[in-house]
């Protein structure tokens, strides 16, 4: 299935901004299940752009605009072919066995097992984890799937409850949040259980036949499962990731995978940010690709 993504971010400044330096992670990544057919980045006003791969292997661009400007816009356009995942099943192993031999795993995946900026191991998170801890004979993959459902059962989707910089404690207190919060919370619980977990930022393609509407960027998680490797789960939709999930960047949490961030100088005044996102199927779905809906 081929998707066309257009992601436009625009900042308008009340007083002119200058010396603007940004780092963006907007280019979808190349992976076994995903092929980037084309990618284009347009920046206005004229900017100096340097592309690089970051520590996590994400494609990133650093964008600098020196002279004063009233607005700053970054438009990323990509054609991405999303391939169905290999649906091979690997026998699940129990937590008892999983945790018995975890020294090598702890060393290799320490970054995805320890606290990070948006996933602090707070008392609140520990208490939540205690309620949701794995049972000794529960399979690791089974538990991960159970958590993905459990968390969404406990917390409602509420765009007003949290903001982009909210920590885990805020969603736990507010009782609701958005995809980013569900992802962070699931990551926190999995890490406390000893399962390496990481954050993914990306897009969710429309359901076939859905009417075009307003879209937002999406976030989900990947867990390192025995025998399967990094496996995607979407806590917002209580499911495994499927052919509609378009991966852009990964990291320990939102801070590593932030789509657009930067600093600028300005005399004073407010800035407003607006985002336009379109994700649409570029070609009719070929029957041979099949579909996996939850």
């Amino acid at each position: 299935m081929i998707f066309r993504v257009r992601h436009a971010t625009r900042f308008d400044y009340e007083a002119p901004a200058y010396e603007s330096h940004n780092e963006v992670r907007l280019r979808p990544c190349d992976a076994a299940s995903q092929l980037v057919l084309s990618f284009d980045l347009q920046v206005t006003p004229h900017a100096s752009i340097h592309e690089f791969r970051d520590y996590f292997g994400n494609h990133a661009h650093s964008i600098s605009v020196h002279p004063p400007h009233r607005s700053f816009a970054v438009v990323a356009t990509a054609m991405v072919e999303r391939l169905p995942r290999f649906s091979g099943r690997s026998p699940d192993i129990t937590f008892e066995r999983y945790l018995a031999g975890d020294e090598a795993r702890t060393r290799e995946y320490c970054e995805f097992l320890t606290a990070s900026r948006y996933v602090p191991f707070s008392d609140r998170l520990r208490r939540f984890f205690w309620m949701a801890r794995p049972r000794r004979h529960e399979g690791v993959a089974e538990y991960t799937m159970r958590m993905v459902g459990f968390i969404r059962d406990q917390f409602g989707y509420d765009t007003g409850a949290t903001n982009v910089h909210s920590s885990l404690d805020e969603i736990l207190r507010a009782g609701g949040g958005v995809c980013q919060d569900f992802a962070h919370l699931t990551i926190g619980v999995l890490r406390l259980a000893g399962v390496p977990a990481r954050y993914v930022s990306g897009y969710l393609g429309p359901e076939p036949g859905a009417a075009p509407g307003e879209q937002a960027s999406h976030a989900w998680i990947e867990a390192m499962l025995p025998g399967l490797g990094w496996t995607g789960f979407d806590p917002t939709h209580r499911c495994r990731t499927d052919i509609r999930h378009i991966r852009v960047a990964v990291g320990r949490d939102y801070a590593d995978a932030t789509p657009v961030r930067g600093v600028y100088r300005s005399a004073a005044g407010r800035n407003t940010m607006s985002v336009e996102l379109e994700v649409c199927a570029a070609t009719p779905t070929a029957p041979s690709f099949g579909q996996s809906q939850q």
Binding site: H21, H50, V263
Partner: peptide
């Protein structure tokens, strides 16, 4: 460099890391 390190730093040079990388 507040772009990649502490965003509240007033002491550094915004964009320096990107300059070094380039």
């Amino acid at each position: 460099d507040p772009v990649v390190f502490r965003p509240d730093s007033m002491l550094g040079v915004p964009g320096l890391t990107a300059v070094l990388r380039a």
